[in-house]
Design a protein around this nucleic acid. Structure first.
Length: 508
DNA sequence: TAATCCCGCCATTGT
DNA sequence: ACAATGGCGGGATTA
């Protein structure tokens, strides 16, 4: 493993011994659940909730979540809002529209499986479980994992095994990327953007002379996705407007690439950028926009993620306190082409010393699962709209209708639909950088199966962890469905359920 | 038509 | 050699 020159992804310690192999499985092979023990939604759930340790709960929850789900082809399926989710074909035949298979959506599902701010770095991710539970081929998981890895939201441990870090390190990672971005003079590159479409290469070429010092020649096709992802993010972080157009990004990335034949790869580059952009969008770090220009408008992306990480206390802030067992700190992945005095960078970043005040959100928001678990039954096709109180739990969700759920401020709308063979439907709309609303509204993408939804608070929870569960089950007659969906919006602030999470994240 | 980007073949890299 | 990763670009979908 060519540590130095290429990726320092694993910090001082490269992946570890490979345990837990596990072989890929074709989605088509998920016939029946592995260990078919009749599981009762409620029972399981109860178990989960009662679990004293949040970690245990998480783990258990994961276990449940990873039950294989019925394949996509499935007829009855998640009913996502929006105009055409299915390609109206023969009656009875519903072809999952392309949108339903988008990487962004998949990523949303993936992210929803794990807490944004885990309290420990022990959450492991198994590619097989994930690909199985999400119902996609491994290849796609790699796409997601790669960019998550580039931001250290996950880390690789061994083959098939990754660790989930969540957004805890995001701050420091971004800070570092920003530093590297400046070092690369990316901000200069960006200026020469717009205009008649011709870029000149006169841009200050970083003294990367032949990419990274001697050290191991360009490690073949380096994990370009990871690298590209980091560079892409860097562009945002050094951009004054925090906006980056696809073509500019592609050009810069191509110029960077030491690969001579890369000029003919513009198209491919753009394809990759879209892939990356999709997961970054799912992460709520960027959003699609358009930049005005004489020539018309060009597609671009705007950074909407945190932008205050560069301060001193920055990064791990609170997190630092949770220091990992081995004390090993991961180093940001770097690529040769980033080089220029390898090591350096904003390296001297964080000094373990817990800087005075840990800033917002105290380190230990003891996850006491306070609130009662209000369980109520809903009709198939409907969702809950509940209001919770950070202090006491939650006012039993007034399961009226609609696909929304109101939470009190601080209650991270982390919901994890759980059910036997059911496809999890997607994350809830407000993601961690919570909006200042008095109440958070979480959208629960429609549930198509009888399911149990568990919602619990995250680090944002100011008074502990609230959680409650809701059972949604299929009603005998789908007739009621219409009526229910029809009426709506009686709650404050709740508006038409028109928009679905993904729809609002990326306006097409 | 242009913008997006799914899909999966098959080259690489790891064990 | 076999399995895990992940370039890459054809061509289908959407906007």
């Amino acid at each position: 493993m060519d540590t130095t020159a290429t990726m320092l992804l694993y910090g001082s310690k490269p992946p570890t011994p490979e345990h837990l192999p596990s072989t890929p499985v074709k989605p088509s092979e998920w016939g029946a659940p592995p260990h078919a023990d009749p599981w009762t939604p409620t029972a399981n759930l109860r178990m989960l909730i009662s679990a004293a340790s949040p970690d245990i709960r998480d783990r258990e929850m994961k276990k449940v979540l990873f039950r294989p789900i019925e394949n996509e082809r499935a007829v009855e399926d998640v009913e996502v809002d929006g105009p055409c989710q299915y390609h109206a074909v023969e009656e009875g035949e519903r072809k999952p529209s392309r949108k339903q298979k988008s990487l962004g959506l998949l990523c949303q599902k993936f992210l929803a499986l794990y807490p944004d701010y885990p309290t420990s770095d022990t959450i492991s991710i198994s590619l097989d479980e994930v690909s199985t539970s999400l119902g996609v081929e491994r290849r796609r998981i790699y796409d997601i994992i790669n960019v998550l890895e580039s931001l250290m939201i996950v880390g690789r441990v061994a083959k098939n095994q990754y660790v989930w870090y969540g957004r805890r390190r995001l701050g420091s990672t971004l800070a570092e990327l920003q530093g590297m971005g400046r070092q690369q003079r990316y901000h200069l590159h960006m200026e020469q953007a717009g205009e008649g479409g011709h870029r000149e290469g006169a841009t200050t070429h970083t003294p990367e002379g032949g990419e990274g010092d001697s050290t191991a020649a360009s490690t073949r096709k380096d994990k370009s996705l990871r690298i590209m992802s980091q560079k892409f993010v860097m562009l945002f972080l050094v951009s004054r407007t925090q906006t980056v157009t696809l073509d500019v990004a592609a050009k810069i990335l191509i110029e960077e690439s030491q690969d001579p034949a890369s000029h003919s790869k513009y198209k491919t580059k753009v394809r990759r950028l879209y892939d990356i952009a999709n997961v970054l969008t799912s992460l709520g770090l960027i959003k699609k926009v358009h930049v005005r220009e004489e020539r018309g408008r060009k597609p671009a992306f705007k950074w909407i993620g945190p932008a205050d990480f560069h301060s001193s206390h920055e990064d791990s802030e609170a997190v630092a306190a949770i220091a990992l067992p081995g004390g090993r700190k991961q180093k940001l992945a770097r690529h040769a082409s980033f080089s220029v005095v390898p090591t350096s960078v904003a390296s001297q970043r964080r000094v373990n010393s817990a800087p005075s005040s840990p800033r917002r959100e105290s380190v230990d928001y003891s996850r006491r699962c306070v609130s009662s678990s209000a369980v109520c039954r809903l009709q198939f096709g409907t969702t809950v709209t509940g209001v919770s109180h950070p202090s006491g739990g939650l006012q039993s969700p007034t399961h009226s209708d609609g696909n929304s759920l109101l939470c009190s401020p601080g209650l991270a709308p982390l919901a994890v639909p759980v059910h036997p063979e059911g496809s999890y439907v997607g994350p809830l709309s407000p993601q961690p950088p919570f909006p200042p609303h008095p109440h958070h509204m979480a959208y629960l993408p429609s549930l198509s199966q009888a399911s149990v939804v568990m919602l619990y608070g995250g680090p944002a929870a100011q008074d502990g962890l609230d959680c409650f569960t809701t059972e949604v089950q299929r009603s005998p007659g789908s007739g009621s469905r219409e009526s229910i969906l029809g009426k709506r919006k009686q709650d404050e602030g709740v508006e038409e359920k028109r928009e679905s999470p993904e729809t609002e994240l990326s306006d097409r």
